[in-house]
Structures are given as structure tokens and as C-alpha cells.
């Protein structure tokens, strides 16, 4: 089970904040397949948001195949996003760490690194626009 936090001034639509937080929990292994998501009632009691916002977020997660509703029981995690390649001891992570260290040694600051990595990120992983709703 996870608890949601709503950032009211973030400018990110509330339902997307919920979607991101579930995905993050899946990546980190906080949520695993078979786990139940909190009910809409529990979420709204804790966050004071409209129940439809929670339902919209859960529908989006269902559409992406990450969770499934079981009538009368709740919404359950179908698959994990946690992958070995993302673990703290993975080779990919080690290579990226080396790269960041070299970038710093070469005199790049945070903005330079963000600009460079965003450009390459967009090139290799073209952004999808569906999340802008």
C-alpha cells in the first residue's frame, strides 16, 4: 500500500501526480504485483481531492496495463516496473555514474548536463504527447 501526496501548486494535473507516484512506487519496488492500490475513498479521505480524479488515475494505469480492477475487491498491481537494469548495482547505472563524473571534471554544470542529456534523450527516446492532457 502507498500513500499519495498532492502538490497543489506544481502545475501538474492531479490525476497525473497520482499516476506518476504509482509508477515510481513500481519502479522502486514499493508496490509489487498482486498488491492492492488504496481505494478511492481512502485516497480522498487523506488528500481531500475529488474521487473522480482518483478513478481517472486508476483508469490511466489500467489502460497502460499496470493495474487491473477486480470488481468488489479493488484495484490490483498487474506487473512491476522494477527492473534489474535500474537497481543500484546495475552496470548501466555504473556507466552513467562514470559519465556524470567525467562531465563534472570537464567543467559542465547542472544546466549543461540537463541540456545535453535532454537533447540525447529526445533523440533516442522520442517523447510521446499523450501525457499532456
Amino acid at each position: 500500500m502507498i500513500a499519495f501526496r498532492i502538490e497543489r501548486s506544481s502545475g501538474v494535473a492531479t490525476y497525473l501526480q497520482l499516476v506518476h507516484q504509482v509508477k515510481q512506487a513500481l519502479l522502486l519496488g514499493v508496490l509489487e504485483p498482486g498488491d492492492r492500490l488504496p481505494t478511492a475513498k481512502d485516497v480522498v479521505a487523506a488528500t481531500a481531492i475529488n474521487p473522480n480524479t482518483v478513478l481517472k488515475a486508476y483508469r490511466e494505469l489500467e489502460r497502460e496495463g499496470l493495474v487491473e480492477p477486480r470488481p468488489g475487491l479493488g484495484t490490483f498491481v498487474r506487473r512491476s516496473l522494477a527492473r534489474e537494469q535500474l537497481a543500484p548495482d546495475s552496470p548501466l547505472r555504473a556507466e552513467l555514474t562514470t559519465w556524470f563524473t567525467r562531465a563534472r571534471a570537464a567543467g559542465l554544470d547542472r544546466d549543461d548536463v540537463v541540456a545535453l542529456s535532454t537533447a540525447l534523450l529526445d533523440q533516442h527516446f522520442p517523447p510521446t504527447t499523450e501525457n499532456d492532457a
Partner: peptide, 30 residues
């Protein structure tokens, strides 16, 4: 507000509330 939203989620209670606090309402009303 959490209690009111939970009641709406659980029972489908229609809630009509007057308020001057508009930024708060954004998260709550449909």
C-alpha cells in the same frame, strides 16, 4: 474536506457547497 470527499466516493452523495476559497475548490469540485 477529506471526510466529505470520502462520503461522496462511498455513497455518491451530491455535495453543493458555497465558498470564497477558489484555489481549494479546484481540487474538489467537478
Amino acid at each position: 474536506l477529506g471526510l466529505l470527499m470520502a462520503d461522496n466516493a462511498e455513497r455518491g452523495t451530491t455535495i453543493v457547497f458555497s465558498s470564497h476559497i477558489l484555489h481549494e475548490a479546484e481540487q474538489i469540485c467537478d
